[in-house]
Design a protein around this nucleic acid. Structure first.
Lengths: 108, 108
DNA sequence: GGAGAAGTACGATGCACGTCAAACTTGGAG
DNA sequence: CTCCAAGTTTGACGTGCATCGTACTTCTCC
């Protein structure tokens, strides 16, 4: 079964804090997360999450975010895409995502 | 004027989120922060913040944390040490430190 | 079925960074 | 003053990782 068909209640666990931080501590990935975080649906096709970047580089970053449990691969219409695992993240690191978004908001 | 005499209201600004995350996304440094975070005084001599690590490596990590605005160099009795800049952090990234500590608590 | 778009897989490359050892600095204790 | 403990500085080394180009897969649409 391809990853984008995995039911939401059987997703792999979110990674430990340390790995989570490493996943978020890259400008490209942080921007990817931000874009999904401000999206009401919290999901978007791959190409909506980056710009001016080689496709293979983008895939690399997606992989890291998925393995950290931040993203979950989904189908968005005809294209592949990713969904932000809000509730899982909130459970594993309560308030972390909110804090990051707030901080990014503060500094523009 | 040596850095440990800088008055608390003239400390350099906390780094932008991205740099903050990079500073925290290392197991050694995260542990250093945790130790100060659980300390009521929020300060300790250098040697209390690490173990089994070369001194120069520790200095290297301290430098990164100071430059990110997480630590502030102070004198702790006769030795040098560091203080966790709680309020500055709370202002720059509200809830971030709490979220991290909570997450670490959750996973033991 | 064929063509093209959208992602993925795989190597290669270059730089950042975590680590250490050794030499230097500084503050206290005797 | 001398010695020692505690940190810092500097230089070297190895690994991890972000990036890219190219080749491959897989989907959609005609």
């Amino acid at each position: 079964m391809p990853p984008w068909e995995t039911p939401s209640d059987q997703l792999p666990p979110v990674a430990p804090v340390q790995k989570l931080l490493r996943a978020l501590a890259d400008p490209v990935r942080l921007e990817m997360v931000r874009r999904l975080a401000v999206d009401p649906a919290a999901e978007a096709p791959c190409s909506d999450l980056y710009e001016g970047l080689n496709k293979s580089t983008a895939t690399h970053h997606f992989k890291i975010l998925v393995e950290a449990g931040v993203f979950h691969p989904v189908m968005v219409g005809p294209s592949r895409g990713h969904r932000l695992r809000r509730t899982a993240l909130q459970k594993a690191a309560p308030g972390l995502l909110d804090a990051l978004m707030a901080a990014m908001e503060l500094e523009g």
